[in-house]
Design a protein around this nucleic acid. Structure first.
Lengths: 197, 197
DNA sequence: CATATTGGTTTCGAGTCGAAACTAAGTTTG
DNA sequence: CAAACTTAGTTTCGACTCGAAACCAATATG
């Protein structure tokens, strides 16, 4: 009955709990938790990542489920569908004015405010550990971690902008802070072939 | 479109993500995420907390929803319903043998393993910050935080066991690590009257 | 050109969710 | 003591979420 409770158990317990309880929408928000996550993701991810598949893997669910959540946001005019110029099968999404406006009252604000009240160095240490946990967990799940281009192993800074060896493209300042599905926390072992490993 | 992304934003993003993705059941587990959370909670909470209301407030949902999740676990013989000896309205739940056995393959094990691989001092610091965040968030939501009797302001250790001023009862070793809904992270300001503030 | 494979959608059934209406057992209060 | 709360729990409802499986169209692979 009373299994030994290690610090790791406690941390896992708290992580689940905080993730769940901070999404509770006190004010009758128009969106559900899944819809908020989707809207946030489309606001933060780069164009090649802002797709149904991208969201599905970020949200650790199936493409089918992702497709439905996206559909519901489209119906509310929070996002608009765009065809990919490169691939006839693929689509991506942009936030509408209404979508951007909705983000202003993101219920996640509560959590962010609380985090903001932390001591500066504590926060930095916390973020660093959390980053490590996320990458390790993604790896153990056999999934790819998500991260920003600026932190990515494929990225080399060239002053203000930088170059992504994965997309073979120069990235301007705006894009450096965007989420990318091809993010890799590790230095690539060999050549680009390893990107999809 | 590209709002400034502060460290706090990143942390919030990661917390939501890790909480969600670590509950994904790779192996077709017999239980859903909500059911796992419920089973875990009943395994960890003390008797007065192991109730439908207790779970509802822990899980940040309504009593109605909690009731349904509990019903589904009862139907699978994971938990058994007991009448409260003190209050004719109240019930509480114990894990069955099957419930305890199920916990052995808790999908949360993945996350725990990853946390276990952290450096000892990093882990301690992480837990401490996480605890602070959880309490602060609960307060900002106007909800009560959950914690163990051993960490509670109502608790005074007397060597191996200890005394809970909230329940006015001596707690033996087993109970010290259990979750309690009356947990308070702060020293009680005045007398016992403040407990329900 | 035939055969995968990939990106996306749809449908299905079970589970989750909050809100609201409801019962029953305690508490307050006049 | 009885009427009026309040609290613990359940039920029902409709909308949403979820994974699985079946499906379609565009792209690779052979």
């Amino acid at each position: 009955m009373s299994l030994p409770v290690t610090p790791s158990d406690r941390i896992a317990e708290l992580l689940i709990h905080i993730g769940r309880s901070s999404r509770s929408e006190d004010e009758r928000s128009t969106l559900t938790a899944a819809q908020w996550t989707c809207l946030r993701f489309f606001a933060r991810a780069n164009r090649t990542t802002r797709t149904p598949s991208g969201f599905a893997s970020f949200h650790a669910t199936t493409r089918g489920t992702a497709s439905q959540i996206i559909k519901s946001l489209e119906a509310q005019d929070m996002i608009v569908r765009r065809k990919s110029p490169d691939d006839g099968r693929s689509v991506f999404f942009d936030l509408t004015k209404a979508g951007c406006a909705a983000l202003e009252s993101d219920p996640l604000g509560h959590l962010i405010a609380v985090i903001d009240s932390l001591d500066h160095t504590d926060r930095a240490a916390f973020l660093s550990t959390l980053n490590r946990l996320t990458s390790a967990l993604a790896e153990s799940r056999g999934a790819r971690a998500f991260g920003t281009c600026g932190d990515c192993a494929h990225f080399t800074s060239t002053g203000q902008s930088g170059y992504c060896s994965c997309m073979s493209k120069e990235l301007d300042v705006d894009r450096i802070d965007q989420l990318c599905a091809s993010y890799s926390p590790f230095a690539p072992a060999g050549k680009d072939a390893d990107v999809r490993a």
